[in-house]
Simulated scan of single mutants.
Amino acid sequence: MTRPVETVAPDDDVSDVLTRLAKADFSGFPVVEDGTVVGIVTETDLVDLFQPSDRRLWIPVGFPPFIETMTYGVDLSWSDLDVGVDLVKSAGKPIREVMVTDVVTVSPDDTVETVIDHLADPGRDINRLPVIEDGELVGIISREDVLRTLSEHDVAV
């Protein structure tokens, strides 16, 4: 496991966390409040905020006084503008609004097999597991950590 663990707080701004992730060599943070893990936030959670959504502009067409109009839906590709608008709308949001609260954790005494089972769970897309001991966050294990360890110890899988 990796320690110490870099964490964020539930009230940290999305923009601040995005900035920290951009400089980090990992892709997610445990969210900790009063020493307890209350969530996890990943690049994917944050990128989802800024994906251009289906924006459709509805234009009424007709002659004044528009008694009989036809409405046309024009699909606009706003890409950069759309992302910019989403960024401005989401930048001040607290992480608590985007974090995942159903966090899978392990203890320092769990086996490598248990860790691998969690990381390989087809029903979840887990890349990291907070390690909890006596209710406190003591480390984190990523998929990369497991693969590196297996490779270093030349373990046949």
Rank of each mutant, 00 (worst) to 15 (best):
M1N: 11
T2F: 02
T2K: 13
R3T: 14
P4N: 10
E6H: 03
E6K: 09
T7F: 09
A9R: 08
P10N: 00
D11E: 13
S15A: 14
L18T: 12
L18P: 02
R20D: 11
A22P: 10
A22C: 04
A24Y: 07
D25G: 08
F29R: 06
V32I: 07
E33H: 10
G35M: 04
V38E: 05
V41A: 04
T42V: 08
V47I: 15
S53F: 07
R55S: 11
W58K: 13
W58Q: 12
I59Y: 01
P65A: 03
M70F: 09
G73S: 14
G73V: 14
G73M: 14
D75A: 14
V83F: 05
G84L: 11
V85T: 03
L87C: 05
L87G: 03
L87V: 12
E97Q: 08
V98Q: 12
M99N: 08
T101E: 13
V106C: 03
V106G: 02
D110R: 10
T111W: 05
E113K: 14
E113G: 11
V115L: 01
H118C: 12
G123Q: 03
L129A: 02
L129T: 11
I132K: 04
E133V: 05
V138G: 08
I140F: 05
D145L: 03
R148M: 04
D154W: 04
V155Y: 14
V155W: 11
